[in-house]
């Protein structure tokens, strides 16, 4: 069902990660991505892995659930990995078939590349698994607040995001209902060539659009009637609270970035023989 696509992400349990401030989680994710791209060797990447595992454990989301999120980019991952493997040059030839040559450096780079992407996707998935969409938009709004200085419509953007979220389940229900109704009238969405299938979508799309416009109009009236007049003089009820959990997260991720930089600099001094073997480029 369509429902799973949207709600499949948030995993409702109570945990350290679930309870921390969405703003901090967003910033932590950015810090994590930065750290992953700073990492230029396996040692700093391993540090990223350790932080990821700690976060997964603290989130109490089953590991399988987090891993499943990687499925979405699996094709992309395999495709780029194969390209890297075949076209990465190097000195130590491992295998050759015609013009295709695989070097040891290519293998090491590919593994590094895959792991980095893997951690990145899992880290982002952890954010959406532990943060309800509503909290996420609140977090984004709060983080964007400084942009008000350059007249960026932060409040309007946040309201649009909030309304979009609010209407996703409603419109999914509506879509399901329309699909069922047209199927009951013999519509076939599963067979035929691509053009036939695109044509088959019209009986769903048109009623859905019309209904969305009707809803928008009614919502506009309802908002007007509830005294909405833009962001001027408007107050805000919801306040995000910064707690002790967030301090821990900030410290952890500050540590991660520092650690990644230090490991980049001193990597060749840790087990030099191993490092020499797995060094990149």
């Amino acid at each position: 069902m369509l429902n799973d696509v949207v709600f499949g992400q948030y995993y409702p349990v109570k945990s350290f990660v679930h309870k921390s401030d969405p703003r901090i989680k967003l910033l932590a994710l950015i810090a994590y991505i930065v750290a992953l791209f700073l990492a230029d060797n396996f040692y700093s990447l391993a540090l990223g892995f350790i932080v990821l595992i700690m976060a997964v454990i603290a989130s109490r989301v089953p590991l399988g659930r987090v891993l499943r999120s990687v499925k979405a980019i699996l094709v992309l991952l395999v495709f780029t990995a194969v390209l890297n493997l075949f076209f990465h040059g190097g000195d130590n030839l491992l295998w050759q078939w015609g013009i295709i040559k695989i070097y040891r450096e290519g293998v090491i780079f590919t593994v590094f590349f895959i792991l980095r992407l893997f951690f990145l996707v899992m880290g982002s998935a952890l954010l959406t698994l532990t943060t309800a969409p509503v909290e996420l938009t609140d977090g984004i709004e709060s983080l964007l607040t400084p942009l008000k200085w350059i007249r960026f419509p932060v409040h309007e953007l946040a309201l649009i995001m909030s309304i979009a979220l609010r209407f996703i389940p409603t419109l999914i229900d509506e879509t399901n209902r329309i699909i069922s109704a047209q199927k009951a009238r013999g519509a076939d969405f599963e067979s035929g060539n691509i053009f036939k299938r695109i044509k088959a979508v019209i009986p769903i799309l048109i009623p859905l659009l019309i209904s969305a416009f009707r809803r928008a109009e009614e919502l506009g009236d309802a908002m007007d009637a509830r005294c909405y007049a833009g962001s001027k003089k408007r107050t805000k009820y919801k306040k995000l609270a910064f707690g002790w959990r967030d301090v821990i997260i900030v410290l952890l991720f500050a540590g991660l970035i520092t650690g990644a930089v230090l490991l980049n600099v001193y990597a060749d001094t840790i087990f030099p023989e191993i490092y020499e073997y797995i060094r990149l480029g």
């Binding site: 509503v134 309201l159 909030s162 509830r226 005294c227 408007r234 009820y237």
Partner: peptide, 18 residues
């Protein structure tokens, strides 16, 4: 079609905020 927020209290707060 009258609700703007995904959580009850946020929705009720909408008018007073305005």
């Amino acid at each position: 079609n009258q609700m703007v927020a995904s959580i009850v209290e946020d929705d009720v707060a909408f008018g007073p905020e305005n």
